[in-house]
Computed example of a mutant assay.
Amino acid sequence: MHEAERYGDKLFAASHSNESDRLSGLADTFDPASRRNLLALGLDARWSCLDVGAGTGTLSGWLASVASPGQVTAVDRDARFLGHLADRGATVIEADITDPAFHPGRFDLVHARFVLMHLRDREEVLRRMVSWLRPGGLLVVSDALAVGGETSPHEAYRRTITGYWHMIAETIGSDRHCAAQYPRAFTELGLRDVGMDTHLPVVGLDAGFDRFLALTLEQARDRMLAAGLPEAVLDEAVKHLAHPLTRESFFAMATCWGRTPTVS
């Protein structure tokens, strides 16, 4: 029996020629909102911070610029894009966070963005992430929340985005709606001061998001066609996205946070 494919095995693999650029588009789009959320939650230079699924390391690098030297750890299953973080004083760990034996230590902040939604065992990983927090520590998790694309009035775009979400759910187990359950899940895990924020970029108004979506569809093309999306429909959607007056939604970034109880 073959092991189920996971994010980064083949689809969205770090070895793909455009993966760094695709992830950079994602970071350009969402880093400002992530930074605002962390600052609003009281990010302190004294905190020890863990950035889970660090990608290209842009947010880890920013955390390292805010935190005291040696206080930031970045972890990713494939750390090839994280070499630059050593110059920022951050520690890089290449590890699989789904491994039950992985325990990176205890932190004041554990942050993960666009990670849990792509894991089939996300609930178990979320539970273990809470165990990586010190008393009073802050867990901040951001994931995509599908909105707009599957209801777009543009038929080819609507069918393409619907086909994309279905394909990655079947292929790698991604859940485009799981972020909506985080406030409940955080509360059930005993976290306090739970809150949520969303940020919705617009395709056609955000250059980074446009680049991310175009490269995502490029990488996913063969999988979507194999899953039954007509090539003419996908080509029409790509043409639509290239038009300078196109304005579409794809997903919002939903960010949920909560704190572990302090020791009385």
Rank of each mutant, 00 (worst) to 15 (best):
S152C: 11
G57N: 04
E123T: 00
L138Q: 03
L43A: 11
L215Y: 00
R127V: 01
D51E: 15
V125C: 02
D51I: 09
L200F: 04
M117E: 14
A226L: 09
D28S: 11
G137Q: 04
P100Y: 14
L138S: 06
A232D: 13
G195T: 01
A207W: 12
T171Q: 09
L191N: 14
H118V: 01
E218V: 03
G105E: 06
L241R: 06
W165L: 07
T260F: 10
G53Q: 08
R259S: 07
D197P: 02
R134M: 09
A232R: 09
D76Y: 09
W47Q: 13
G208I: 02
D44N: 15
G25W: 05
F30S: 12
D197S: 14
T255M: 14
S48M: 00
H2Q: 12
H111G: 06
G137F: 13
L119S: 03
D121I: 02
I172F: 08
I97Y: 02
T56L: 11
E150Q: 10
H199R: 06
D143W: 01
A54Y: 04
A54H: 10
F12M: 07
N18W: 04
I168K: 01
P201S: 14
G190T: 01
E188D: 15
D99L: 03
A90D: 10
D99G: 03
S60R: 05
G42V: 11
A67M: 13
T56R: 15
A237S: 14
L126K: 02
G258T: 15
E231S: 13
P104C: 15
V92Y: 14
T246P: 00
C256E: 01
N37G: 04
H84M: 03
S174N: 06
A40F: 05
G8S: 04
A146D: 06
A185E: 13
L50K: 13
C256P: 06
D206P: 00
G42R: 06
R176N: 03
L145S: 12
T198N: 06
D96Q: 02
G137E: 04
